[in-house]
Design a protein around this nucleic acid. Structure first.
Length: 433
DNA sequence: TTTGATGATTGCGG
DNA sequence: CCGCAATCATCAAA
């Protein structure tokens, strides 16, 4: 450190060409050790040294003139060699062999963090699209991490400032380095300066600048942390989904009541339709399933509502198909889809319809049973046909897919569902709109 | 202000 | 890693 300071000071002294004689050319005392040389010569050297010592006290022009004079002085070569000797003897040139500073852990930490936050790192050229793609490619499907537009906007602002500053520092560093090198080169005509010394000087300058950069990195990190915490807070401050989004989610949920576990693709699609993230979709279904299960009665009305709705939509599209396929057996609507899990008693489905019109809802579990749009549709049809009564018998609910102990299709694991015939089938059916 | 609804988070188990 | 269950924190209607 003190060495650094000394050198910087020296540079300052030189460039300022003014004051600080001492900093500028602190030459060791002439040390005349044994003067084998002639006295006259000694005297000359003494003069020259004296000139050097005072040269910086004079004006720049004067100094230049003197410097020139000095360079042309007949004793200059001698002086030069003397300086070399002095240098060698005092070991000035050897100092600072301890280079290679170990990578600062602190700096590494900052770098890693900036990289992780996407502040430093490869140019994510423009855009959120690219960023998103990168994130996706990175393999973390849990995109919930960062995709708040505000957050992204602020982050990119920080990023921009960071890069601008960094560039500025780099430029300043380069400029200064060149300047110093020129100075040293210039000076090397007068005093001995090895390339190694220049190199060392450069590295010292770089170190100095990198410590400044570190401060920049540190404050950037702080800014990101603050932004982050704010973003998290904002996340906590939830906003309800739009009515439309809720509608879409509910439609899916009730039309897949027998197996309300959307596949990854389905989630993505829902997310897209609702303008929310996949993890929000997952959260929504998680919440919905648990809440539905906990209080089916409460959701009856909603279930009926959506059942009817989907039925209507489906009606247009599927009417023809349904018509053909099924004449009248109420059971098993399409296929096995429900076959495996869902309800054993297909009967309940009908009830839902009843409720619809009749409103007294009590049929309780009814609506719930709708297993897919098609199913619903069927019910409607059948109902119209005059099916009503059915209900009496079902005491319980377990509305479709819910098995007595809480699992959705007993197997709880959707996989089981799939195997039989149609895991995917159900998925297909939905896609309502 | 209270209260129910709802999105998010956390801990646990498979 | 996924889903469940409990819980938190906020929203929004009463």
């Amino acid at each position: 450190m003190d060495e650094q300071a000394r050198i910087m000071q020296a540079l300052g002294g030189v460039s300022l060409a003014g004051h600080s004689v001492q900093g500028g050319m602190a030459l060791p005392p002439p040390h005349g050790h044994d003067g084998t040389d002639g006295d006259g010569r000694k005297q000359d050297i003494g003069d020259i040294l004296h000139q050097i010592m005072t040269i910086t006290d004079q004006s720049l022009d004067e100094a230049q003139a003197k410097k020139h004079g000095l360079n042309c002085h007949r004793m200059k070569p001698a002086l030069f060699s003397v300086l070399c000797e002095i240098k060698e003897k005092t070991g000035l040139s050897i100092r600072g062999a301890q280079e290679e500073d170990p990578p600062d852990p602190q700096l590494m930490r900052l770098d890693n963090m900036l990289l992780a936050e996407g502040v430093s790192g490869p140019e994510k050229g423009g855009g959120s699209a690219a960023a998103a793609a990168a994130a996706a490619a990175a393999g973390s499907p849990t995109d919930n991490s960062i995709e708040h537009s505000d957050y992204r906007a602020k982050l990119s602002q920080i990023r921009q400032i960071y890069h601008t500053e960094l560039e500025k520092y780099e430029q300043a560093c380069n400029e200064f380095t060149t300047h110093v090198m020129n100075l040293l080169r210039e000076q090397s005509r007068t005093r001995p300066i090895s390339p190694k010394e220049i190199e060392r000087m450069v590295s010292i300058i770089h170190r100095k600048f990198s410590s400044i950069q570190m401060q920049l990195k540190q404050s950037t990190c702080e800014a990101v942390m603050i932004l982050r915490s704010r973003f998290l807070d904002a996340r906590r401050k939830r906003r309800n989904f739009s009515k439309q989004a809720t509608e879409i989610l509910n439609e899916y949920f009730y039309s897949h009541l027998s197996n309300p576990y959307p596949s990854e693709e389905a989630k993505e699609e829902l997310a897209k339709k609702c303008s929310i993230t996949v993890s929000q979709v997952s959260n929504w279904f998680g919440n919905k399933r648990i809440r539905y299960k906990k209080n089916i009665g409460k959701f009856q009305e909603e279930a009926n509502l959506y059942a009817a709705k989907t039925a209507v939509t489906a009606a247009h599209a599927a009417a023809a198909a349904v018509q053909n396929s099924q004449t009248n057996s109420p059971t098993t609507p399409n296929s096995g889809s429900s076959g495996s899990f869902n309800l054993p008693n297909s009967g309940d489905m009908f009830m839902s319809m009843q409720n619809l019109n009749g409103d007294s809802y009590q049929g309780a579990q009814v609506g719930a049973n709708v297993q897919s749009q098609v199913d619903t549709l069927r019910h409607v049809i059948s109902q119209t046909a005059g099916y009503n009564d059915v209900l009496g018998g079902n005491p319980m609910y377990s509305p479709h897919g819910l098995n007595g102990n809480g699992g959705w299709q007993d197997a709880t694991t959707p996989s089981s569902v799939i195997s039989p015939t149609e895991g995917p089938g159900s998925v297909h059916s939905d896609t309502s709109n």
